[in-house]
Write a protein that binds this DNA or RNA. Structure first.
Ligand SMILES: [Mn+2]
Ligand SMILES: [Mn+2]
Ligand SMILES: [Zn+2]
Ligand SMILES: [Zn+2]
Lengths: 143, 143
DNA sequence: TTCTTGACTTAGACTGTGTCTATCTTAGGA
DNA sequence: TCCTAAGATAGACACAGTCTAAGTCAAGAA
């Protein structure tokens, strides 16, 4: 049907008990360019399942991250954001003014830009890039 | 004498009152590859000036950031780190295991890797890169 | 279908990080 | 030396996240 029912099936195959709480958390995270905080996930989940607790949302998000189904994104010093786009590698583009986050796909290997003389003997495996600027809407209001 | 007395002079020129608290915060931040949390700055400052308060450390760090003399770095979802290397543009290399942060200088313009088709109409001005891997010491202990 | 049980959920206490306010102190000019 | 606005302080407060103890329930067993 949709991506989320695939996800729920993968989780059931891994021995997860399929509870209504886990189902709504997975549903809330469905979509493109989704980067919600834990409390935003909780608020949206509570629209469908009013008694769901903050602890369960944190537990479920943590489990999804551990299983590699969801990514944690920390673009600012505030709350972490949860990103269901864990299948296709990507980077983030953030608006200075409104905070909107878009998924972007740079060309080339970001690790290639760091010469070995600058690697301090590290074995480097990942590079996260955060591009920042003004989105079209905010550039218009600032004019 | 050193970089910090230069800094203190620049601040005095900008109308800052030169207090002992501000002096020790500036001294604690002196050096290369320095990326301390606010509470680490407070602990080290308190060794020299035991009565210095957390609020003053936070205030002073915030002022130094606003003046462009210190950078805020958020490499994890935990506490922000304060970086006195605000003069030379650089990126960060972080060890997965011990959290050590090194300043690194990639080649080329990081913004060039993002095609305009991937810019969603944004006016992009900065790109922060966080390289992650195992440092030499941690790779050795893991073997 | 009902029973059973350990996996799961819950409320709320607790911790770490950071901000704010009211009051006290002091750097630096008159 | 004195004055005063800028700065420092203690502690309350706010937010993000973790943990615990007690209650609930999904799903396999009978
Ligand atoms: Mn994303
Ligand atoms: Mn740095
Ligand atoms: Zn915007
Ligand atoms: Zn290390």
């Amino acid at each position: 049907m949709n991506k989320m029912s695939d996800l729920l099936e993968r989780l059931r195959d891994r021995g997860w008990r399929l509870t209504s709480q886990r189902r709504v958390v997975a549903e809330v995270l469905d979509g493109d360019h989704v980067h919600l905080t834990a409390d935003e996930v909780h608020a949206r989940a509570a629209e469908r399942l009013p008694e769901i607790s903050r602890a369960t949302v944190y537990n479920t998000l943590g489990e999804l991250v551990a299983l590699g189904e969801v990514l944690e994104v920390a673009t600012d010093g505030r709350a972490k954001r949860y990103d269901p786009n864990a299948h296709r590698p990507h980077q983030h583009l953030v608006c200075f003014a409104c905070g909107t986050i878009r998924d972007v796909h740079p060309t080339g290997d970001p690790l290639a830009s760091l010469p070995s003389a600058e690697r301090f003997g590290f074995t480097i495996t990942t590079a996260e890039v955060t591009y920042r600027g003004l989105c079209a809407d905010c550039a218009r209001s600032a004019a």
